[in-house]
Nucleic acid binder design. Structure first.
Lengths: 120, 120
DNA sequence: ATAGCGGGCTGGAGTAACTTCAGGTCAAGG
DNA sequence: CCTTGACCTGAAGTTACTCCAGCCCGCTAT
C-alpha cells in the first residue's frame, strides 16, 4: 500500500506517518526499489490504531512504549493489554471532562440568552 | 486572589496562566504594588472557562478570538454565543471519537484475550 | 525522446502551546 | 539579619508535528 492510501485510511497525514516511522512509533516500513514505502496491511492497521489513540489523547511516550512492546512480539501482550485498559480509563475521564464542559457551556449560553432577552 | 489560588481553582498551571496573560488570552491582570498579580473573581472565572475549553480541544486561535470579543463588551455576546455553540458541536464530535476508540480498544482487547486463552 | 505531471523521498527549518530555568524582588518568621 | 516561600521577568528548551526546498522516478501527451 502507498503512503497516501495509508494516510487516507488511518486519518494521519503523510508527514505524520513519516514522522512516526522516523521516531520509532511504528516499525520500519519496507521500501520498494525506488525508495518508496510499501506498507503491509498490518502496518496500516497499526497506524490506524495509533491515530485513534492519539486522537483520544494518549501521550506519545506511552505510544512509544506500546510500539516497543508490539515490535518485541506476543510475549508482551499482557503488558499491552494493561496499557490499553489504562487508556480506556483515560477515555472515561475525557468523557467526564467533556460532560462538565457541556454543562458549563449550557450555563454560559443561558446567561447570554438572559442578557440578550433583557436588552430587547 | 493570588495566582496560586487561581491555578488551583482553574486547573491551569501557574506558568500557563502567566503565558495566557502574556499572549492576550485573558485581560491584563491588575498588579499589587509589589508587582504580584491580583486576580478578581471575574478573572478567575474567565480562566476557569478557558481551562475547560482548552481541555476539550478548543484551538487557541479561537480562544484568542473569544478573548478579544470578551474584552470588547456585551455587544459581542451574539458572536460569543455562536462560538460556544460551535464548540458544543465539537464536543459531540469528540464524544464520537472517544466512542469509536472505545470500540476499537474492546476489539483489540478481545483479540488479546483470545491469544492469551489459546496459549494457556 | 522530451517536457511536464503527480507522487514520493530527504534533511532541515518553522510553529504552537506550553514548560523550565536563571536570576531577582519582597514580606514575614526565627 | 538571614532565610524561606511565593512571586516576578525574559529567554531558552520541548513536544509533536507541519511545511518547505530540492531532488528522483515513472507516466503520457506532443
Amino acid at each position: 500500500m502507498r503512503i497516501s492510501e495509508v494516510a487516507a485510511k488511518s486519518g494521519l497525514s503523510i508527514d505524520t506517518i513519516r514522522y512516526y516511522e522516523k521516531s520509532g512509533l511504528c516499525p520500519p516500513i519496507a521500501r520498494g526499489r525506488d525508495g518508496t514505502r510499501q506498507f503491509t496491511a498490518e502496518n496500516a492497521e497499526w497506524l490506524t490504531l495509533l491515530s485513534s489513540l492519539r486522537d483520544t489523547g494518549m501521550p506519545t511516550k506511552d505510544m512509544r512504549h506500546f510500539a516497543g512492546l508490539y515490535q518485541t512480539g506476543d510475549a508482551t501482550i499482557p503488558e499491552r493489554k494493561h496499557l490499553l485498559l489504562e487508556h480506556s480509563r483515560r477515555l472515561e475521564a475525557r468523557h467526564e471532562t467533556i460532560n462538565r464542559c457541556k454543562a458549563l457551556l449550557a450555563h454560559k449560553l443561558a446567561r447570554y440568552d438572559r442578557i440578550l432577552g433583557q436588552s430587547s
